[in-house]
Design a protein around this nucleic acid. Sequence first.
DNA 1: GAGTGGTCTAGACCACAAC
DNA 2: TTGTGGTCTAGACCACTCC
Lengths: 248, 248
Amino acid sequence: MTKGINLKRIKEVQMLKYQDVAEKIKQMIYLQEMAKDTQLPNIEGLINQYQVSRTTIIKALNQLERHGVIYQVQGSGIFVRQPKKKGYLNFLESHGFSVDLGDLPGSSQVFNVDVIQPNSKIKDHLRCEDDEQVYYIKRLRYVEGEVYGFEQSYYRKKLVSYLNKEIAENSIFSYVQDVCKISIGFSDKYFKAIKLDAETASYLGLQIGDPALCVEEIFYTTAGEPFDFSQIIYHYDNAKFYVQSHSK
Amino acid sequence: MTKGINLKRIKEVQMLKYQDVAEKIKQMIYLQEMAKDTQLPNIEGLINQYQVSRTTIIKALNQLERHGVIYQVQGSGIFVRQPKKKGYLNFLESHGFSVDLGDLPGSSQVFNVDVIQPNSKIKDHLRCEDDEQVYYIKRLRYVEGEVYGFEQSYYRKKLVSYLNKEIAENSIFSYVQDVCKISIGFSDKYFKAIKLDAETASYLGLQIGDPALCVEEIFYTTAGEPFDFSQIIYHYDNAKFYVQSHSK
DNA sequence: GAGTGGTCTAGACCACAAC
DNA sequence: TTGTGGTCTAGACCACTCC
């Protein structure tokens, strides 16, 4: 739903050729259900097909390569990389940046949406002014009906001036982009395995001392201002992630 | 040591302008210890400074942006992103792809280097032929003297024809690149939190049931052939990671 | 409006792979 | 040798920010 709005917005505002071409090539791969290692038309062919310059095609291909959709072999050709691994979440796109998480149905149980004075850790991460306030949201997140994480997030009121339970039950990020007109630039994520404490264990339906993946993330606007700090404790049995990287 | 050889090799074989420029800009930032959000010269300035075309500068800047070194704000300028977070390992560069992990001293205790017939899981991940053999390496990895992970890796003998304990005590990846002339293209990583079993717990000096981060990774050559499958169980207290991503 | 980053183009030339 | 991806250039024009 929110995704539909978002795509539309992008198309109306701007339609960069290389993004357009990248999207079309991706669709070609997925709609035709091409097997991995299937060879795509060569660059010359793609130039004719999409009527853009060589450079634009290459830019689109490089983006697809970085996103794990294809791989290019100099002197040889362009190939399909692999089908999406089921049951695993794309770690890099697990909050913002999503082109299409799409397939998995997610939901949230919201416990509170409060305006508070941040403690020093949060203040530091969000680079808050001394008297600045932040929204504090606590929620349980589900994927396909299974609990997969307990999240505590902080949004700078200065940048996200309003939030409520309903918004938090859906996608805060879509709201932040579409309504607050904040454009998301980049993020830092820190993570490690931990032992669950009593409170979090009860939220996740697990035992004290059970393992969990703890992820702290800071999201920045395109202008380089931090606007969101979140800590998510993931259920060790339900939450699995993947990352695809590329040397280029 | 191995890093020195590697850099030299790159310089002798090829010296792409945009990589060169990216490296120089990075050096400028680190050597001058620029604080985060410090503004860099504008593109026109960089063009004059490095005497390359606008496109080449932009390509270098985009690479640095993707690697988390800088961020660019349209209409405003180019800024330093952040100092490296100490004590955390770059998750994406934690095996191959490293430009400079550099600072932290690591070592390995090797238990065995054997040639074996892979089981079906390994065979599948590495896309082995029916009768193909693989090297099986089991080692404990240390960072700054602390145990940080227990690793079991499998290399296709077809691609990595020889391995021994000495190589495994240093960097297998440097050896694979420099001696076997395999160029690393991309990788898939899958990870989640787990409970330690008895064997792994004893290797890591922990208790059964303690938490751990379990990462499985497959590395591919630039030609798209898988050559290494590894499973690493990380010590939950010693191993911490970070990932920087970018929406572009 | 001036300054700054971002896209797009056409085309020359290079590097690698497969035959 | 031929085909294929990759780099690099000069320059036009667009989009955004800040004064």
